[in-house]
Amino acid sequence: MKLAVKDAMRCVGCQSCMFACSRRSGNAGLSNTCIGVKSAGGISRGYTVVVCRSCENPPCANVCPTGALEPKEGGGVRLKSSKCIGCGMCKDACIIDAVFWNEQDNKPVICVQCGYCVEYCPYEVLELIKDKKGVSHD
């Protein structure tokens, strides 16, 4: 399964998805969120919703100097936290800013495509779709 943005125009900016994503770790707050909802140049223009697109040849993994980010079959990456030195190169390599950062741990937080956030979007902005190799996701 892959997380996708179905219709960003419906996003109201409540950030319930961001809190849901971070809450998976058990705590409140936003430290572990792997979704970014930000205004598209001012709130009146609506919102940009950033989720990991689970690239098939992921640039974040390609630049990781320690092999902490392992490409997964079918796209996306898995973080081996013990190998990560917190250099931030993965974050810089993702041109849609979908590698998020846990400031307290100084390590990336990577979307695992679980879809927990989808359950907390009241406006059907997000969806979890079947992953078919070769199909692109918006």
């Binding site: 319930s16 971070s22 809450r23 770790s25 058990g26 705590n27 409140a28 707050g29 936003l30 430290s31 572990n32 969120t33 400031e103 307290q104 907390y120 009241p122």
Partner: peptide
Amino acid sequence: GKQAIEVANKKEYRTLYDKIYNAAT
């Protein structure tokens, strides 16, 4: 900022969160 907030009981937290969220939506 972007930090974590610790809660006293993680399971009860999720349950109560859902109750409030569902009431709101």
